[in-house]
Amino acid sequence: MTRWLRLAAFLVVAGALLLVAGQIRRFGEPRLAEMDLYFNRYSQDEVAANNAVTAIVFDYRGYDTLGEATVLFAAVVGVALILRKVKK
């Protein structure tokens, strides 16, 4: 019974992926490119940075980086909490 369930799940997922695979656009031709083109055109004018990726990460998407730093801080706090010296 579980075997048939697994097979059915596999077939459904594989069929969905194959169905979508036919509709993928070719590499380098995204459907919505306005934002990419905007970053490419204006990151040097607005942020004065040659590296558009850093301009996005630290300027346009600064909140994302703030959250990332918070995640790292939480990870460090967790490690320090688990590996602390336990007072008897």
Partner: peptide
């Protein structure tokens, strides 16, 4: 160039260096 970007890079770089360094140091200890 780039205004606050280099300063933020230094801040985040020192933070990541200290964070990952203290994680591996705690594990090693």
């Amino acid at each position: 160039t780039s205004g606050t970007l280099p300063l933020m890079n230094w801040a985040v770089g020192l933070k990541v260096l200290a964070g990952l360094g203290s994680v591996v140091l705690l594990f090693a200890l």
